[in-house]
């Protein structure tokens, strides 16, 4: 019965969405904001990648809110999972025996690939204002690199949770501080400072590379902590 009512609801929704899609002007955008940004971004921000100037320049406050949402999600995951393992006193003692190193192929592959992943992640973060990529993508690559190292060989490698949270708080605070410095210079919050530099070189677009570095470190530390919390939790199955 639930299935049939769900089907009815879904078919009505399909009809509605198809009608809306038929009304859309396909192939050209209805918004004017995008055109204004595309015309002014080269002079106002100075980044070659326009998406970066939208993410950190025109909508920097949005990115700050996104980071805080991610922080809230990571803290709630930590809260939910540590509370469940807190009830089991014996879980900490058996922790070492449950985890085995992975097989030969995984261990050697992660040893081979780990420095490469670090270089790729830092490259993506630091070139975010010139080429596709940026703090989010590079941060994810860094997080996956570190947490794969821990997941593959849990006995040999362990990551200090205090260090992770220090990196995360440092990155978050530096993001806000860079934004507030612009306020003291008499400009609006998160406005790019330090001049534009030479267009399309590595040191250009003012404070945008620094902001993306902070975003990358914060996203990487948060996602690595989240993955480790999901992995090391003791759940009775």
């Amino acid at each position: 019965m639930t299935k049939y009512s769900a089907l009815l609801f879904i078919s009505g929704l399909v009809f509605l969405l198809m009608v809306i899609t038929g009304l859309l002007p396909m192939g050209h955008t209805p918004m004017l904001v995008g055109n204004a940004i595309l015309e002014g971004a080269k002079d106002q921000v100075g980044a070659a990648n326009v998406v970066t100037s939208v993410v950190l320049g025109y909508r920097g406050l949005d990115t700050l809110g996104e980071l805080s949402i991610l922080f809230a999600a990571a803290s709630v995951v930590g809260l939910v999972l540590t509370k469940s393992s807190f009830n089991k006193h014996a879980s900490n003692n058996d922790d070492k025996h449950d985890h085995h190193d992975s097989g030969f192929v995984a261990v050697n592959a992660i040893d081979l690939i780990f420095p490469l992943l670090l270089v790729v992640g830092m490259y993506i973060i630091t070139h975010g204002h010139l080429t596709p990529g940026g703090g989010f993508q590079g941060g994810v690559v860094l997080a996956v690199a570190f947490s794969m190292l821990v997941i593959v060989r849990p006995r040999r490698v362990s990551i200090n949770h205090g260090m992770v949270s220090i990196i995360e708080s440092f990155a978050g605070v530096s993001f806000i501080v860079i934004g507030v410095v612009a306020l003291f210079k008499g400009q609006s919050f998160l406005q790019p400072l330090l001049g534009h530099g030479e267009f399309a070189s590595l040191w250009s677009a003012g404070t945008l590379p620094l902001l993306y570095l902070a975003v990358g470190l914060k996203v990487g530390a948060e996602l690595a902590g989240l993955l480790l919390a999901l992995n090391t939790d003791e759940v009775a199955s």
Binding site: T29, M31, G34, V51, R59, E66
Partner: peptide
């Protein structure tokens, strides 16, 4: 060029 604003939104 394509509109950069939806791309930035989807990125986050």
């Amino acid at each position: 060029m394509n509109d950069p604003v939806p791309q930035a939104l989807v990125l986050t």
